[in-house]
């Protein structure tokens, strides 16, 4: 009598080789390279030497500037994630409940900004938010303001741009995570005497929390690592960890410092992931 389950561990290992190779090449190797780079010494101007030093990490943890950058990154990412959640949640809920043949089309519409590069979208925002942009022109035309409001080249512009760039990811992850939500549960709550608001607070919201945690985690990480939007919409005023990595790597040429900041960011991501995993389990109860 043969066991009907394949009992060939060797085969399983062989089959997972491509995946192991892909992860090693695509993630592990670059991270190891980054880790090694972060302990190379540098000389003024960004001259790179091969060797060993902890200088970059000492600078990272002693210069209060990096603490400020980290705080600014966390703040900006949390704000943009929250904004994306507030905008994306109703959209996702609407799409999730939609029983129409247009549903697929509308879902595609919600995620189609992903088809346009972030650079192009950022320039689009400049056109909308700039001093001579649509919003300021409209407000001026309506006589509400006489000087343009600064909506871009500052934190407001970056928050708006980041929120918009996160929105498709938020909507998609919320949609994917709303699986436990059954229309019948809301109807049951209604028949039991719950008003629409209480139904939302007691049934819809708690049941969608796993989706909220999932979407927020993904968006938070994307926001922390985003540098194109802050650069294009920040007017040089919005200094974040990601833009600092970009500047150290591609302007001031201090690769080891850029690598050290990237490693710190990686550590931050691990913390966020673990925290999110815990939270996920708690809200899924």
């Amino acid at each position: 009598m043969a066991d009907d389950r394949p009992s060939q561990p060797g085969l399983a290992a062989t089959l997972s080789l491509p995946a192991i190779a892909a992860v090693s090449l695509g993630f592990l190797l670059p991270v190891l390279w980054l880790a090694r780079m972060s302990v190379n010494p540098t000389e003024p101007g960004g001259v790179l030497r091969e060797g060993w030093t902890a200088n970059q990490y000492v600078e990272l943890f002693t210069d209060s500037f990096y603490a400020e950058l980290t705080l600014a990154s966390l703040q900006m990412s949390a704000t943009a994630t929250l904004c994306a959640l507030l905008v994306g949640y109703p959209i996702a809920l609407f799409l999730y409940r939609l029983e129409s043949r247009w549903k697929t089309l509308l879902v595609l519409l919600a995620i189609c900004p992903l088809l346009v590069s972030g650079v192009v979208r950022a320039y689009g925002w400049i056109v909308i938010l700039g001093d001579a942009g649509w919003i300021n022109s409209m407000l001026r035309g309506a006589g509400l303001i006489d000087r343009p409001i600064r909506l871009v080249n500052n934190h407001i512009g970056v928050t708006i741009g980041l929120t918009e760039s996160l929105l498709p990811y938020m909507t998609l992850s919320l949609l994917a995570g709303l699986g436990r939500l059954d229309r019948g549960l809301e109807e049951a709550a209604r028949t039991l005497g719950a008003s629409p608001l209480r139904t939302f607070l007691r049934i819809t919201l708690p049941l969608s929390l796993p989706a909220v945690v999932l979407g927020s985690t993904i968006c938070f990480m994307l926001a922390v690592s985003a540098f194109v939007t802050p650069r294009l919409l920040g007017g040089g005023r919005v200094l974040l960890l990601a833009t600092e990595i970009y500047e150290q790597a591609l302007v001031t040429l201090n690769w080891p410092l850029a690598a050290a900041i990237a490693m710190a960011l990686l550590a931050l991501f691990s913390v966020v992931l673990v925290a999110s995993g815990r939270l996920q389990r708690r809200v899924a109860e």
């Binding site: 950022a122 400049i126 700039g130 001093d131 001579a132 600064r150 080249n153 650069r231 294009l232 920040g234 007017g235 040089g236 005023r237």
Partner: peptide
């Protein structure tokens, strides 16, 4: 007074684009 400390794509374009 500075609108941007990092003109994107560059200052020339932003002047001709009325920003």
């Amino acid at each position: 007074s500075v609108q941007t400390f990092d003109p994107q794509p560059d200052g020339y374009t932003l002047i001709l684009g009325n920003t």
